[in-house]
Amino acid sequence: MSDAPEPPPTPTPTDPAAGAPPSATLREAPVPHPVLLAVRHLFVRAPKRVLLDDISLELNDREVTAIIGPSGCGKTTFIRTLNRMVEVSPGLRVEGSVRYKGQEIYGAGIDPVQVRRRIGMVFQRPIVFPMSIYENVAFGLRLEGTDEDEVEATVERSLKRAGLWREVGDSLEAPALQLSGGQQQRLCIARALATGPRVLLMDEPTASLDPVGTQKIEDLLFELKHEYSVVIVTHNMQQAARVADRTAFFYGGKLVEVDETARLFETPRERLTEQYITGRFG
C-alpha cells in the first residue's frame, strides 16, 4: 500500500481520448478497485491565473486522504474537481484527467449529476435545507424517484452511519434547522451518504464546529473509511495526523508531496513540507 507519489498509470477500460460514445455512463466495476480516483496532470485555470498546476494524485478505496496546505493553495479547488463541482464556479477551465474506477469523469457524455451521486461532498459549513430532518436526508433519493419504503430504509441507514440516529431517530419530522451545528454537519454527511456514493469529499468539515462536534465527526471518519474513500481538506495538521491514512501537501496550486500520514509528518522529503508542518508559515 505504500505507493510512490507517481505510480504507474492504471489500466483503462475505456479510453475517453478515443471518443467515448455520447451515451456513456459511469459503470460500476465488477471488482473493487484499489485506486478509486486517479488524477493525472490536472490543471485548473482562472482567467488570469492558474489555480491548480499539474496535479497527479491517486486516492485509494477505503482510506482517508487528507489535503493540507496554507490558505489559497488550491486544496478546495482540488476536491471540487473530483466531483465536477468546480464547473459550478463560472470562468474556471479544467484540463487533464480525473478517472473514477478507471473511467474519465470529464469524458464526453458523462453527466456531472451522475458523477456527484457517486462522489458526495460535505462543505465547510453545515448547509441544511429548510425542511424536515427526514426530507433533508431523502433529498437525493427524491431526485431519483425512489419508492417510499426504500427511502425510509435508506434515511434510517444513512442517519445511523452518520451517527445521528440515536439523537434524531424519534424526531425525523422536526425542522433540520433546529439541530445544533455539529448535528447539522452530521446530517449533511447522512444526506451525502444516502445517495450511495463510494467517495466522500469533505471540505474542512469541522472548521465551524466546537470541539465536541469536531470529535464526533472525527470518530465518524474512522467508521466511514471501512466502506468509503474519504478525502478531507483541513487546515488543522493535528486533525490530518489523527484521521488520515495518507496526507497530501499542496502549496501554490502544486502538489508538493503525498505520503503515508505518519511518514509525511515525521520525515518529509521536501523542505517546503517540513517548513509548513513545523509552523514556519501557513
Binding site: N83, M85, V88, V113, Q114, R116, R117, G120, M121, F123, R125, I127, F129, F139, G140, L143, C188, R191, A192, T195
Partner: peptide, 15 residues
C-alpha cells in the same frame, strides 16, 4: 439565496 445552499444541492446530484 446563498450560493453555498445551491452548491449543497448540486453536490447531491440535483440538476
Amino acid at each position: 439565496v446563498p450560493s453555498a445552499v445551491l452548491e449543497a444541492s448540486l453536490a447531491l446530484g440535483a440538476t
